[in-house]
Design a protein around this nucleic acid. Structure first.
Length: 297
DNA sequence: CACCATGTTCCTTG
DNA sequence: CCAAGGAACATGGT
């Protein structure tokens, strides 16, 4: 579920639930998730600690802890990887197969579940130092972004995934932002003009804010009988599905919402990119027909 | 069976 | 040393 908007929504949901709760004990079921913190150190620093707040930086969750001794604050960080989720669950419910780390909070368990185990729950905060600016930070100027792009010959889509340039955008919102900006994903970063970067930054902010707003309306009753949240891109069903709000991502062959040309897919740096060949690349393609033979969901 | 998947990190190559 | 590309990680869905 993890790009900046999903993490932001999760953080807003978790903060009031976890604030001032004490971690009575920890159950580490997948030590890999703690890397590079050792299980012993993790248990020592987390057990008995009070959660002071839950915040976000890029795609990281920041758990401010106060150790039992009542000493200075400690920082625990979480990353959801590709499939990570965090939610409260009644302690009488059996833990899911891929529960990686479980905090005992008394009435509830706080469960970090991650089927692929790419996520993190660790006291190693070094990765935070590598992060670029927050896209939604009001003080961020297009000029700064432009400076960061001008020395790279990589495609702009690939650069948007570079967390040291701009932090929090992932594969889905990279395609979405470029579509809204009307910029071809294959454009070389160093060939973008300052005005285009300005338009792109505006598009990024619009897309991220929209996603946060939409996600905020989704009920996140993690502790309920359902045990699942509505933030998943895939596997969910019914109206208001997450993917239905996406403009181009995963819409191969479907008509562009702006010009009806069939959406195309390409691969950049090993990741899928979706785009409109006409709106973004200026290609003269027929509108209307699907132009492809693939049948998607 | 084949291919695809929201992310990051490591290794190799140039 | 840097930039860029690819594989690896691990599991599940289609």
């Amino acid at each position: 579920m993890p790009e900046l908007p999903e993490v932001e929504i999760l953080v807003r949901h978790l903060d009031p639930l976890l604030r001032n709760r004490v971690i009575r004990s920890v159950d580490v079921r997948r030590e890999k998730i703690l890397r590079p913190t050792s299980p012993a150190e993790f248990a020592r620093r987390a057990t008995g600690a009070k959660i002071l707040s839950v915040a976000r930086r890029a795609k990281y969750l920041l758990f401010a802890l106060r150790p039992p001794g009542g000493k200075e604050a400690d920082l625990l960080i979480g990353h959801l990887g590709m499939t990570g989720r965090i939610y409260l669950a009644p302690r009488d419910r059996p833990l899911p197969r891929h529960a990686a780390v479980v905090f005992d909070l008394g009435l509830h368990y706080c469960v970090f579940e991650d089927t692929r185990y790419f996520g993190r729950m660790t006291f190693d905060t070094a990765p935070l130092a590598e992060l670029g600016p927050e896209p939604l930070e009001p003080g961020l100027r297009a000029e700064v972004l432009w400076q960061g792009l001008r020395r790279s010959r990589q495609a702009i889509k690939v650069k948007l995934l570079d967390q040291s340039l701009l932090a929090g955008i992932g594969n889905i919102y990279a395609s979405e932002s470029l579509f809204v900006a009307g910029i071809a994903p294959c454009r070389r970063a160093d060939r973008l003009k300052i005005d285009e970067v300005s338009i792109l930054l505006r598009a990024i902010r619009k897309v991220l804010r929209e996603a946060i707003a939409a996600g905020s309306t989704v009920p996140l009753d993690f502790a309920g009988a359902e045990g699942r949240d509505g933030l998943f891109y895939y596997g969910s069903s019914g109206p208001g599905r997450y993917e239905e709000r996406l403009r181009v991502y995963d819409r191969l062959g479907q008509p562009c919402l702006r010009c009806r040309a069939p959406i195309r897919r390409t691969v950049q740096a090993g990741r899928s990119t979706y785009f409109c060949p006409r709106c973004q690349c200026g290609l003269r393609v027929r509108a209307g027909s699907t132009g492809n033979t693939s049948r998607d969901r």
